[in-house]
Computed example of a mutant assay.
Amino acid sequence: MYSPTDSVDDIIASSNLSDCSLDNDVGPASPPAGPRYRAGRGGGVEISGGRPAQRRPSNRDEFDGPHHFLQLPTAEYVAMQERDLPHLPTNLPIQEQDYILRQMNERLSQCAFDFVAKYQFPIPLAPNTRPVEKALDREWVEWVYLLKRLATKRRIPARVLYNAQIKQFVPTLEHSLEMRYAPSSATPSSAPMGAGAGIGPGQGALGMKNGQYIQRRPLKDDRHVLQLLSAGIQVAKILKDAGAMDYLDKLYASTERQIYERAPARYRG
């Protein structure tokens, strides 16, 4: 359906040149065997004599060669770093945070649903899943997984993304995800995999769903909530969904205003 040349070779891999192995044969074909050649503007330049370049064994990395360590900090300095972390302002109770982030996740799910439907990308079906008929048939974390797999399998061409930002696509998606926490020790071992992904507000730190104990996400500081909303806006932007961008931008502005109105005077201005 699309040419693989439009997609990223490997989204997960770092795009920094410093991360690439110098041993990979990338670029034009190797010069002919025999005398050594050096690349130049006028073509291959013969270099007489000399020893052939030694290839580094593929099972070694730069840490196996010469290296050094930084000077160990003093015990007093380490103790100063490891003291109790400073408190960050949390002016939104957990119920309001849940409500705001659920609004974001539902709108992003609709954004992903529209994107996948528009370009007719395939959705794999597992034996225990049913076909997707509406956006909320999958949670946002599931849409992220699908979009990441489509990108890394070269199914998504760069031209359908904002400014062809195919290399930024997966990191942008991941920034919009909340950190998932392991279930509490009170959770029975028979709890289903992934339980607790869609817990609503008002259920306490340790809630119940379908007869199973589930640990909900902890309280987030105000900046973390705004950071997640900002990341959601960037997802809508890279998917070129103007409606989702407008919705999430208004949600960000209203949340920021709500935090500001509740913040103590010292955090204002």
Rank of each mutant, 00 (worst) to 15 (best):
Q203I: 05
I233E: 01
S189Q: 03
A164M: 11
G207Q: 06
A231H: 14
I214E: 01
R217H: 14
Q234E: 14
D241W: 11
A236Y: 10
P201A: 06
P188K: 09
V235K: 05
L229T: 02
A205C: 07
N163S: 14
A182I: 15
G202M: 10
I199S: 03
M179N: 12
L219Q: 11
A236P: 04
Q203N: 03
I238E: 01
G198Q: 09
Q203C: 04
A197P: 01
G194V: 03
P188E: 11
K167C: 05
L229D: 01
P218K: 13
I214H: 10
T172Q: 02
M208T: 13
A231K: 14
P201V: 01
V225D: 01
D221Q: 15
R223N: 10
A191T: 08
G202D: 04
D221P: 09
F169H: 03
T172P: 00
D221T: 11
L226C: 13
M193I: 11
I214A: 03
N210D: 14
S176C: 10
S176F: 03
S190W: 13
L228P: 01
K240L: 13
V225S: 04
R180Q: 12
T187M: 11
A231P: 09
Q165Y: 10
P188N: 07
D241F: 09
A236T: 02
Y213N: 02
E178V: 14
P171T: 10
T187N: 11
S189T: 08
G211L: 12
L229P: 05
Q215M: 15
M193Y: 15
